[in-house]
Design a binder for these strands. Structure first.
Lengths: 194, 194
DNA sequence: CAGAGTTGCATCATCAATGTTGCATGTTCT
DNA sequence: AGAACATGCAACATTGATGATGCAACTCTG
């Protein structure tokens, strides 16, 4: 591999990144957007997009793969296995939000056919599962908490926080974790109001 | 209007309903589904769908209009203006869930161009807003609660409950309201743990 | 400068979904 | 049975997105 080749390839990779980021911006606003619109947003010709990605599926797949990698790294960086549950929960939330703010669409498509992405995703899923189990055993969650429901709520809160978009990842994470654990009410719930 | 006409028109209306319901089933699974697939699910020919709905947009519009009406009725039937906040919250939740379980896709498309639907939707939005304000003033929500965030969370919880699909509307509503107010944790939150 | 590589542009082929129409065949009511 | 209407079927036109290709122009690097 010559120096020239490296330099040129670097240009190419920059273009690829521009396309991926443009696709994220466009598709997060309109999932049915056209390759033309993506190319326009990326500032390249549509043919260039097709030269880089054989098909639309390939493009979305590449986005999903990229987001999946960042997602897995974000979770791993929070050390959810070793950190105390509350710390882990907060760190995972903040890190995932950082990724999701930039790659929301790609992450929503990360559950597709690609076997590698599916594997990574399942792995993260399992880590999250264990984190919630640990949280419950540590008394952070109610002993009778339905972990499946808790996880659903958690994902939904992260999603809403990412959509609302006001504040940085740390502020949003605080809000998410706080809401997840305490809700927004003052009462002790329907079963024991007041 | 002759009796014959009435009878025939009644047949036609039944077909329309079958198409609307089939479209909901198909599109909730795959929003990009084909008119062909919708027709197949409805047990009619594709041409029949096109005879009833001039275009795909018209079909989705009709679904949205139908769902919007049921949605507005569901909220109104809970008397959110006059009932005590906690009761109103629960009743609205249960009633909306009943609609959303059957018309999830249509409701997700109810924010479109149609002026009448938009009006109704804004009206409901406002009722909900007032309900949350009343809930806060009644001490049901924390005094410092961000109503915008609370509403987002509320909508998201309803959505998740409808997706999870286990249990009837009343059980789901209980879960939603309980989670909204108390969260899933035992602590007093990040600011005052333990 | 020469060469390798990339991009833009124009163009073409393909394809799937949409929307239309004519006609024969029911179905329901009178 | 006859009138009125609805449906299925087959065929057709249209359209918009997708994907491919040839060529000229550009930008690096050596």
């Amino acid at each position: 591999m010559t120096g020239a080749t490296r330099a040129l390839r670097s240009d190419a990779e920059r273009t690829v990144r521009q396309i991926l980021e443009a696709a994220e911006r466009v598709l997060s606003r309109n999932p049915a957007a056209t390759m033309e619109q993506i190319a326009e947003e990326a500032g390249v010709a549509r043919t260039t997009v097709h030269r880089r990605f054989a098909s639309r599926d390939a493009l979305v797949g590449a986005m999903a793969a990229w987001a999946t990698r960042r997602f897995a790294d974000a979770v791993e960086a929070a050390h959810p296995e070793t950190a105390p549950p509350l710390v882990a929960l907060y760190q995972v939330t903040a890190n995932v939000l950082r990724v999701k703010l930039d790659w929301g669409f790609a992450m929503s498509r990360a559950l597709t056919a690609d076997p590698e992405a599916a594997r990574v995703h399942a792995e993260v899923e399992e880590k999250c599962e264990r984190m919630f189990r640990a949280a419950r055993e540590a008394g952070l969650l109610r002993p009778d908490a339905d972990l499946g429901w808790a996880r659903r709520v958690y994902y939904a809160l992260i999603h809403e926080a990412a959509q609302s978009g006001d504040g940085d990842a740390d502020a949003l994470a605080t809000r998410v974790v706080d809401t997840l654990l305490r809700g927004v009410g003052t009462t002790q719930g329907l079963t024991a109001p007041r």
